[in-house]
Design a protein around this nucleic acid. Structure first.
Length: 741
DNA sequence: TTGCCTCGAGATCA
DNA sequence: CTCGAGGCAA
């Protein structure tokens, strides 16, 4: 007999314990015991309840992960209707609200406002009877909503039983259910992995999760809640102010916003609004504004209601970060490398503080995944200073004549064939410099700051020059004269002569810059510098052969001979994929052999040993793929012509002097720069490079130091998590000075 | 800043 | 072969 009592007591004890730890974990975010311990307790309780169903209670923590799925949600009528709020869109509108409030109250009243962020989620009403959660209902139309109790039970931060014992017999609390950003990202990641549809934003994800008929699904969704108000309260008097009431709710174990603040006048309200606005991106959840409520309950009563909204509260909204608009067309832009990028032409909308009329769609995979069509109404997002993007299409608004988007088969600019190499994400125009678009981009690149740095030669000028057929390649720039340039739009005598003189100045450059400016695919700033420093002169670069650079191992040679009959007779396979059985080798290897043997027949006569090649020159970061691109570039007669023209025009650079910095203290160390520094990042980069250090773009465990300026972001947190030492500006200055740079 | 791609090294296996 | 790192391009 006593066993039964012991079980009952233990069950009660476990429920209390679990409730306590739940609160610490979800609400206070400060767990006391590890998850496995919690699970152990939970399983023990589950066991007892399985043996003794009579001990199972409705508020038991085991009841969170729901039972059978529902057919439909039951309707619930709210005892006290759930109201909406008036909106204000700027400080003036808030001031007008403040004035209305004061006008309605007696002059002696001093109004305070309880302020908190307005969460972007969905409103919910929880009903506790004798401290036990008995019902959770959505807002619905404000009068009747849907009974989502089973789903709400699965939300960890919502107590199934209130703590303490001085709570009202009946307590209805209102609040917002939302999905934290991190949880949203993780959920979408999981959905994508499972091949299921992703959610457009955390709000939709929260709403969708809460309306699951099967609460087991809801249980897997990272939902949370903050309470912000009261509904029906029976048998207990609440406090005299909104802020005090929130404190009471928190004491009973209900989650409330940690950002809650009381403002004593409209100036403080404005300051609060501004400060939340600044921290908006850093908050763990999406918000769309701030709610201000007259704090004193007595004054709220005096103010009363108008239509469906209280006179004592207002929601001041941020400019929307998401808007709906029409996708009018999709155009394809051709980049320097020939890559075709789809760009959405949108009916202009005001979003996130600016008017947006086009947005990148990245690539075709992206379009297909989001199933976007021309004519669709789409959601456009622009958060903070982020580039505008098309989030998704509103499928329910899709017109019958919405047109699917296809990659054009011909380049929209030059009509050359467009190819997408299997396995690559982007499709490219094959027109090369025949394509006006690629030609323009090549010249823009040549003129850009990190390349030849031609001052005053902006994108617009280059486009005009090419369109007017005044230049065909970068070398033609140096043949321009003031009179010709001055005829262009927005160009007069003065700016024309400035341009000519900066062209003259740009002739004095460096070999790394020059190599970079040629725009060889895959040869960027760093690689150009590595090549220049290894070889020392343009002549040496021009003379490079695949022989010098590409390794061919004996095992590869054997495979070649085995499959050689599958190769094209002439051994020339420009822009082609190697035959299937040789796909492990790059076309560089085929080219390497083509340098030496005219035909497959010749090749077959050789022994594997004869085909083996050891590279004689090693350039850091340059493998066979890039080696082929480099060698092939200089082998094109057209490129040689341009090169010769450039040299003839007087483009020159000083000989490379090799400074030995291997004894420098910074030599070999790897740095990452982030945040806003008082000098340009480039200048620190140059000094660090001069000192023999490396400057790379992303933090990894091989990074020796992160130099962080003001408002450093993700890199700083990554460095911290990897234990990479972080330097401030003073520290890096000291280090450089110590080494004499 | 982000995603894609190449490079290069270490793991794993024949 | 797989994976982390880092460079390039947008």
């Amino acid at each position: 007999m006593s066993d039964l009592f012991a079980e009952e007591a233990r069950a009660e004890e476990l429920r209390k314990l679990l409730q306590y730890h739940n609160h610490r974990y979800y609400v206070l975010d400060d767990p006391e015991i590890p998850d496995v311990e919690y699970d152990k307790l939970l399983r023990e309780l589950q066991q007892i309840e399985a043996d003794r169903p009579d001990l199972r209670t409705i508020d038991s923590p085991t009841q969170r992960v729901g039972g059978a799925a529902l057919d439909a949600f039951e309707q619930v009528t709210h005892a006290i209707p759930m109201l909406s709020l008036d909106n204000a869109f700027d400080d003036d509108e808030f001031a007008a609200f403040d004035q209305r409030v004061k006008d309605r109250l007696s002059r002696s009243a001093t109004v305070r406002y309880a302020a908190e962020p307005k969460l972007d989620g969905l409103a919910i009403s929880l009903r506790y009877e004798q401290g036990v959660l008995v019902q959770a209902a959505t807002r619905g139309d404000g009068t009747t909503g849907e009974n989502v109790t089973a789903n709400v039970r699965t939300i960890g931060s919502i107590p199934l039983r209130l703590s303490g014992n001085d709570y009202p017999e009946v307590l209805e609390v209102r609040g917002e259910i939302f999905m934290p950003k991190a949880g949203f990202d993780a959920l979408n990641e999981r959905q994508r992995a499972k091949g299921e549809k992703t959610f457009a934003n955390p709000r939709n994800a929260a709403a969708g999760s809460l309306r699951q008929l099967d609460s087991k699904i809801t249980a897997t969704r990272p939902l949370a809640m903050y309470c912000y108000g009261l509904g029906e309260v029976v048998g207990h008097s609440m406090a005299t102010s909104q802020s005090e009431n929130m404190r009471l709710l928190a004491n009973w174990g209900l989650p409330t916003s940690p950002e809650l603040k009381v403002c004593k006048d409209s100036a403080e309200c404005a300051a609060y609004f501004a400060s939340i606005g600044e921290r908006r991106d850093g908050l763990a959840y999406d918000i769309d504004g701030v709610v201000f409520k007259v704090d004193q309950v007595e004054l709220q009563k005096q103010l009363g209601f108008v239509a469906r909204a209280p006179r004592w509260a207002i929601a001041q909204k941020f400019p929307a970060q998401e808007q709906l608009t029409l996708l009018e067309a999709v155009e394809f832009q051709v980049g320097r490398t020939g890559a075709l990028t789809p760009v959405a032409r949108l009916k202009p909308v005001f979003v996130g503080g600016v008017t947006v009329s086009n947005a990148t769609l990245h690539n075709m995979d992206e379009i297909e995944r989001k199933d976007i069509r021309v004519g669709d109404t789409v959601i456009v997002r622009r958060a903070g200073d982020v580039i505008p993007e098309v989030v998704s299409a509103v499928l329910s608004d899709r017109p019958d004549d919405a047109k699917p988007i296809h990659m054009p088969e011909q380049c929209p600019v030059c009509e050359s064939q467009v190819v997408r190499i299997s396995g690559e994400a982007v499709a490219r125009c094959t027109g090369g410099l025949f394509c006006q678009a690629q030609r323009k981009e090549a010249i823009k690149h040549f003129a850009s700051r990190k390349a030849m740095d031609i001052d005053g030669l902006g994108d617009k000028i280059v486009e005009q020059l090419v369109d007017e057929q005044l230049i065909k390649d970068p070398a033609d720039l140096f043949a321009l004269d003031v009179a010709t340039v001055a005829k262009l739009e927005r160009m007069a005598e003065k700016s024309a002569s400035n341009l000519i003189s900066s062209l003259d100045k740009a002739k004095h450059t460096t070999l790394p810059r020059f190599l970079f400016s040629l725009g060889i695919l895959g040869i960027g700033e760093t690689m150009a510098m590595n090549i220049a420093n290894t070889l020392g002169s343009l002549e040496a670069v021009q003379k490079l052969t695949l022989h010098d650079l590409v390794e061919l191992k004996l095992s590869q040679a054997k495979a070649f001979l085995k499959y050689a009959s599958a190769l094209p007779k002439e051994l020339r396979v420009p822009m082609m994929q190697p035959p299937m059985d040789l796909k492990w080798c790059s076309s560089a290897h085929i080219e390497l052999l083509a340098e030496q043997y005219d035909s497959v027949a010749d090749l077959l006569k050789q022994s594997p040993e004869a085909l083996v090649n050891q590279p004689t020159i090693s350039i850091e970061g340059l493998g066979d793929v890039l080696a082929e691109k480099l060698v092939m570039f200089f082998r094109q007669p057209h490129n040689q012509d341009v090169l010769n023209k450039l040299i003839a025009a007087g483009v020159q650079w000083p000989a490379i002097e090799k400074v030995d910095v291997s004894d420098s203290e910074l030599s070999g160390l790897s740095f990452v720069l982030t945040g806003t520094l008082s000098q340009p990042r480039e200048s620190y980069k140059a000094r660090l490079l001069a000192a023999g250090a490396k400057v790379v773009g992303s933090v990894s465990k091989n990074t020796n130091y992160l130099v962080a300026g003001e408002s450093a972001g993700s890199k700083l947190s990554k460095a911290e998590s990897l234990g990479v030492p972080v330097l401030d500006e003073a520290a890096i200055e000291a280090m450089l000075a110590k080494s004499g740079f």
